[in-house]
Design a protein around this nucleic acid. Sequence first.
DNA 1: TCTTGTTTAGAGTACT
DNA 2: AGTACTCTAAACAAGA
Length: 319
Amino acid sequence: MPRPGKNSYSDQKPPYSYISLTAMAIQNSAEKMLPLSDIYKFIMDRFPYYRENTQRWQNSLRHNLSFNDCFIKIPRRPDQPGKGSFWALHPDCGDMFENGSFLRRRKRFKVLRAEHMACKSSPMMHYLHHHHHHPGSKLGTASAHHDHSAGPASTVGRLPPFQGYGGITCAQPGGFKHPFAIENIIGRDYKGVMASGFPLTSVMHHLGYPVPPQLSSVVNSMWPHVGMLSESMGGVPMPASSEYAPFSVTAKGLYHSANGQTLPAVPVPIKPTPSLAPVPGLTGLQSGPAHLCSPGSVMEKSDLLEGKGNPLHPPLLLS
DNA sequence: TCTTGTTTAGAGTACT
DNA sequence: AGTACTCTAAACAAGA
């Protein structure tokens, strides 16, 4: 069996669905929204597999963007010339991949008719609505001394300080953590991992603060093809990895909490390809639900309407 | 013309 | 087994 590492997975299909790849790209962007071409670029940069047969997978990807309610289209402003719209993640789509598999969602995200009108037809209005009524979040309050408006200095300079949905509480009063936020991707045990100082960088990123290179380099070493904290965030430049980080990272120390227990910190395909060998020290995680995203569960829209509380996450404890 | 976006359809696969 | 989800293909329209 080929061992993870050098070029093992370079040309193999990544263990992610197009939906997860797209969400990754969007979530990784500074503004939490990307034009189609940038989504393509992100995927091709990170996954050599997708540098071929572009017509095929790009068609599928476009299909996914249109078909799935978890993606919303945000029109360009008149002063933002360019082709196509921006694509963002629906603020309520929550933990689509909470079962730990990035190949298959637990449940398709579907918006209600009325909301669909607001989000799909006029997503920017939806964004404005949410942003207006939910200007803060638990993440925000956790660092209340920071000026929330001091977001990422709009690296592209083409948009207003659109912070994406990552900081919007929306229907999750406990603090919305997007499934593709690094917190959810690499682990749920905040307390344990916080001890290593790791998710702090993501939180900082969420809040729009520059991240010290020494911190972001840790992140990049764990999830290099995602590059959550890339050069645009002031972190170290992220090489286009030829490996799939979840199976090749050497982050043993970071995956273990203080009591030595191994954390379910990697996205695991339901049916790993033979070459997707488990990382030493992560045995037992490659099969079955990993629950790596959060202990919360995706709620039906009807549940939301019935006011059954936070459907996704308990309040985030940062202390 | 090329890119983007929408829609329909069918096959394959995982989940319940 | 039935259902749900993903992937692929294709046709078509609209806009840059």
